[in-house]
Amino acid sequence: MMAIDQATVRKIASLARIAISDAEAAAMEGELNGILGWVEQLGEVDVTGVEPMTAVIPNTLRLRDDVVDADPLTGGNRRDDILANAPAPQHGFFGVPKVIE
C-alpha cells in the first residue's frame, strides 16, 4: 500500500479528534509509515477460505432479561454518580460548548 503523507496524517488526526502541530504531523508521518510498512507483511499470508476471527474462545452471545435496575451497577437512577466527575455539570445535565446543528 502507498505510504501516507502529512496531509493523510492530519486527516487521520482530525478523524480521531486529536489536534496536532506541524512538527507532530511531520514526526508521525515517519513513525506511522514505519509501522504500517512493517505490518504490510501480513499481505503475504494466503488467507483464501479463512474466516476472520469472531470469538477468540468459542462462545456465543448471552442475552440479558428485560428488567429495569435489576443490578445497580448496570441500572439507572444514579444521576449523582453519573455527573460526579463531570467537568461542567449544569442542573442535572452535562454542559458542553454550544452546538450549532
Partner: peptide
C-alpha cells in the same frame, strides 16, 4: 500513535486490507 494507527487501518478503503486481513491471520 496507537489511536492514529487504529483510526487509519479502520478508515474507508483500508478496512479489509488491514483489519479483515489481520483477523483472518488471527484465525
Amino acid at each position: 500513535r496507537r489511536i492514529m494507527i487504529g483510526t487509519y487501518v479502520l478508515s474507508a478503503g483500508f478496512y479489509d486490507a488491514y483489519y479483515t486481513q489481520a483477523q483472518k491471520v488471527r484465525t
